[in-house]
Write a protein that binds this DNA or RNA. Structure first.
Lengths: 405, 405
DNA sequence: AAAGTAAATGAATCAGTAA
DNA sequence: GTTACTGATTCATTTACTT
């Protein structure tokens, strides 16, 4: 783990290294802006300038450095070039020229979800990473992911053969039974990567602008290097690449033109903080609690579902006295007064004067005070109305029968 | 709906059209391959040649045509240019030059899942669509999607203010309660679109190579045009753009250099086959279809769903005078008396004395006799009850204000 | 007019704290 | 220990306004 201060254009040749296994390049994106950010305690401000006279000036800047970087790579080495839509086409031209079109391996899309107030456009939610190898003989570790739930796993395990017209068909043995053919391990990793954006509250955050998540770098490093290999980041910024390399037992060299960035990288390597994304581990499903069929009861009224609150299932888009109206659908096995209490408790701090509770069943309560406050309006689900109706009809029926006899 | 045979370079100027609202360009991607595919019955083989002497030859081909296409656009018009990683950088250069960098709106990633046995690489799972407008004053219909389940919906409805150090914080009233601030509608559509690849077994498939799903085109068309607008596809191929435009009540012009493609497009327009996605979308727009709504609305009462009956959606398992009770859920745009009539007509042969109609909306009737027979019991869906409640609350609110003055 | 600066915005996520 | 729920934070933003 070495961190150098200076411009990679000058630093790299002086290091005389020719056996880099992976270079991750995360240069300025040509945003024509000055980027600034501070640590949370506001003691240090980090910044870098991304303003250029022209596209060609930017292109020249990249071109010079990419040539030096190309030289430093081992024959089995790879380059990952991170950029966004503003200058990806320029980078692609240069990379094709320097590495050769034949060594262009993949265009990786890093897809994430973000907050923004965009109105008259699509919300930007991706960046691009170009993957080039130095030669045809490049190191690559196949990563397999799970099959999609819709995949007919049983069938893809079966042996295949060709019929008379040379069409590929699934094979059968003499008894007409399917024949299995070894095991399958999964689906190769795709070139679209859904990795959460570095969260505003994440501990991993250093205060350096444009910081990338460690997980993204870990995936790149694991894809094309083995433990002990050497990783280079010529624009190392906050040092994410080095932290990721360290966590995966790879060696790494970082270079940056900012003294603050170099200091930060060194500090991070001593005390690495890697946030374990709950979202990545558990997936979105872990957040879903409000039942979808339950919410479809609200059909016809505009509402926003709430997924993270045990008391409130949705807010109506209409407001009452300026406050959105919380809605709860009575849960299975829950009495109406219990439901009302849960709703009121969850809504108490929200200043709501009107709440709506959808009743789905008559459940006797064990609750000490079985009254429902005035602020909670109870609306019956049709199922409940019908149930009561049926009971009533049955009564009428019986009395009718009695009258006849 | 017009389909022209020929090269758009020659055909477009001869059409003398200057008010195209949307052009979708899906040219050869510079794959250096001859693309062939046949219809399932193998009677027709479609093919097009995508082999080029050099990148610059390909660039010249595009450049000439893009200039003509640019001229044909209305001032509020947009261009969507479909390509993949092999030549996206060339296209971007040309588009920046012809449309102006300032009119580059978005780089859309069409992400799909596809099976492949790619071994020493990532699985290609995306294509790129560049979105350019002719001017700053372009037509754009904001599309909103649902919030992520992890979103703190409670909080984003709250008003914000600035504290002493000018930091943005959530506001509280004098009692320490949160203050709400209007309503939210949802998240703007992102620039990464997860749309399934045209299924190998889809009915929608025509046998034309590189056929795109209709759903993809529908999304593009809805994003930047209104009904009645004019859509152009200068490389129309199998005619997907025209089929999508037709389904959304837009006019369209298609051009192709292949006689077979032109014939296929004309044939598809007469008998459009749109698989699932379209149905799915229509269903969503109409707030789900009756079956699903019926299912969830009846939750709690045992019932048997009925398919293929225009009047009855389900039968309750309970009986009245020995006859199962038919249930209908009021359809969208259907008045209650119309619904009751349909229900009674369908149930007449069933000898039913009691029917249940679930009301979902107040729709004024055009029906001669707007009465509902006694045998039909009307039960309100919660959505309707809430709608009426909201209207009532609004009235109270207003009268309250009057009383104060 | 173009360009540059200041202000407003927005939703996704994890860190805390409370239960 | 767990498991809720609340709140803070951003910003390779976007928009509005001023030079």
């Amino acid at each position: 783990m070495k961190v150098h201060f200076g411009d990679c254009l000058n630093v790299l040749p002086s290091l005389r290294i020719g056996s880099i296994d992976l270079t991750y390049v995360d240069p300025p994106f040509c945003t024509q802006r000055q980027h600034r950010l501070s640590t949370r305690d506001r003691t240090i401000e980090y910044s870098f300038d991304d303003r250029w006279k022209s596209l060609s000036e930017y292109g020249d800047f990249l071109s010079e450095r990419l040539r030096v970087i190309h030289l430093a790579l081992a024959p089995t080495g790879s380059l990952f070039f991170h950029c966004d839509k503003t200058a990806s086409h320029i980078a692609k031209f240069l990379l094709d020229e320097i590495f050769g079109t034949a060594n262009f391996r993949a265009e990786i899309i890093w897809h994430y979800k973000r907050w923004s107030n965009s109105a008259r456009n699509l919300l930007p939610a991706h960046q691009t990473i170009f993957f080039y190898s130095k030669t045809d003989n490049y190191k690559f570790n196949t990563v397999l992911t799970d099959y999609s739930p819709t995949t007919n796993v049983d069938q893809i395990l079966q042996r295949r053969t060709r019929d008379q017209s040379n069409k590929s068909v699934y094979d059968r043995d003499d008894n007409g039974n399917v024949v299995y053919n070894g095991t399958k391990k999964g689906v190769p990793l795709s070139d679209v990567w859904d990795i959460p954006f570095l969260n505003p509250k994440a501990k991993e955050r250093t205060g350096y602008p444009t910081q990338k998540p460690v997980f993204l770098l870990q995936r790149i490093i694991e894809l094309v290097t083995d433990p002990g290999d050497l990783v280079l980041d010529p624009f190392c910024g906050s040092g994410t690449t080095l932290v990721a390399a360290q966590s995966l037992m790879r060696e790494a060299i970082g270079i940056d033109t900012s003294k603050e960035a170099v200091a930060l990288t060194k500090k991070r390597l001593k005390q690495p903080v890697i946030t374990e994304s709950f979202l990545l581990k558990k997936g979105l499903k872990a957040y879903r609690n409000a039942d979808e069929t339950a919410l479809s009861l609200l059909n016809g009224v505009p509402y926003v579902p709430v997924h993270r609150n045990n008391g409130v299932d949705a807010f109506l888009k209409s407001t009452y006295k300026g406050v959105p109206i919380p809605v709860r659908v009575q849960k299975h096995g829950e009495s109406l007064s219990e439901a009302a209490a849960a709703l009121r408790k969850a809504a108490s701090s929200k200043n709501a004067h009107r709440m709506i509770l959808i009743a789905i069943d008559d459940i006797p309560t064990l609750f000490p005070d079985p009254t429902i406050p005035d602020s909670v309006v109870v609306v019956n689900a049709p199922g409940l109305s019908i149930k009561r109706l049926l009971a009533q009809m049955e009564l009428e029926d019986q009395s009718g029968c009695h009258a006849e006899t």
